[in-house]
Amino acid sequence: MRNSLGLRSLIEEIGGVDQVGIDERVAKYATRSIKKHAKVFGLKLATTMVDLTTLEGKDTPGKVASLCQKALRPHDDSDIPPTAAVCVYPAMVKHAAKLLKGTSVKIASVATAFPSGQSSLKIRLAEVRAAVSDGADEIDMVINRGAFLAGELARVQDEISAVLEACGEATLKVILETSELETYDNIRAASFLAMRVLRPGDFIKTSTGKTSANATLGNNQVMLEAIRDHFLATGVEIAMKPAGGIRTAKEALHFLVAVKETLGDAWLNQDRYRFGASALLNDLVRQMVKEKTGVYQAPYTFSESTTAY
């Protein structure tokens, strides 16, 4: 077992992060002016990157079915592409599978005692295996934040490895739960812990969406830079998923600007970048329809809209 010296020496090895500097850097992304074709391209790209998510106690097979339909066909306009995946609880995977198997839309399932991860490893692994055998293409796991903050870095990493093995062919997304790690130094350290055992194409992900603070341009940037440094050092391409809190198309474009200017063109696709979101999809659709017709449509024009008047 490592003590907190382990964390300090890891940070020393990978380099620390200055919070003021990161916040200043990301403020510039929000000043990029994305117009005309670039806007349409960005909106479409963002749509293909959405992991359309429902993670509620009140989820039912019926709710999941309508989510799947929405993911396959976000709007009547067939120019608007399907999303990357739907993201559901393990119990809902088999219901999603009925509608999505054989389509381009992947089934992602949170597992490992989401969102807290506070269960025994055995149970967490069993949950992963169950979700995969029910048809999940992708597993969104949570790291053991308690172990991380207690300085047990090896344990955090071993658990990620164990989950990875339980995934088999399924893609793994490792949720760091950035708001509980709190500092950018910790977020960078946790990113490296995960990336060093992940396969190319596996993801690191900001948050569960279940705490007060979720994806921000700041933690997104810290993780993108970690991915870049890991890639330049090893050649391994790790993917990224900010989740929670990105509700508007405009915000999504700012996140994509960060990807474009930090990792470049090779990460501007759904295999390398995703948005964990629900309300975002309809705003993307709304903006795309506006670009086409020149006017904003009423919220009720869009299926599954939760905004009404």
Binding site: R32, S33, I34, K35, K36, H37, A38, K39, F41, G42, L45, S161, L164, E165, G168, E169, V197, R199, P200, G201, R228, F231, L232, T234, G235, V236, E237, L256, K260, E261, L263, G264, D265, A266, L268
Partner: peptide
Amino acid sequence: MHSPKRTARPVARELLFGNLWEYDAAP
């Protein structure tokens, strides 16, 4: 390491800042 099918490609470790998503003029 874990899944032999997905090992790192021996890529040129270079980031491509190309024109996949070129910003339109925004005067």
